[in-house]
Amino acid sequence: MSAQSSSFTIEQFYKAISQKKLIGGKCRKCGKIHMPPRPLCDSCLSKEFDWVELPKTGKLLTYTVIHVAPTQFQTMAPYAVGIVQLENGVKIPGMIKETPLDKIKVGMPLTLEFEECQQTQQWPQWPRYHFKPA
């Protein structure tokens, strides 16, 4: 396997996030933009991609406010999460912060914000991001 075909991966996506870049893999054959990037296009089975920077703004498609949280997020509850459709159509889920919970509405414009990396020894060490009102 060539280095190029193996590099369109979730690991590379998060490596870019740690450098405060939001990227996807664009299929050279059919043009589909993948988030996360993947080594095989699910539409046309091509293995050829180019990196593209994704727009950081979009609109909220749906959301929920989590009250019963897993151990790791318990101190943050209640917190909002939603699915955002970016301006180019790509969908990304994430937390919605920097707004009162009762101000969150379907259709509201949001923008992606990178968070500072936490230092842990455990897998995975993916950096985080969240959405805030645009």
């Binding site: 929920t64 989590i66 019963v68 999460v81 937390m95 993916w126």
Partner: peptide
């Protein structure tokens, strides 16, 4: 990598559908 990691629980997914 994209749902659990960002705090989305299992009831949370069905809440998004609701």
């Amino acid at each position: 990598p994209f749902e659990q990691w960002h705090g989305i629980t299992f009831p949370g997914l069905f809440a998004l559908m609701a």
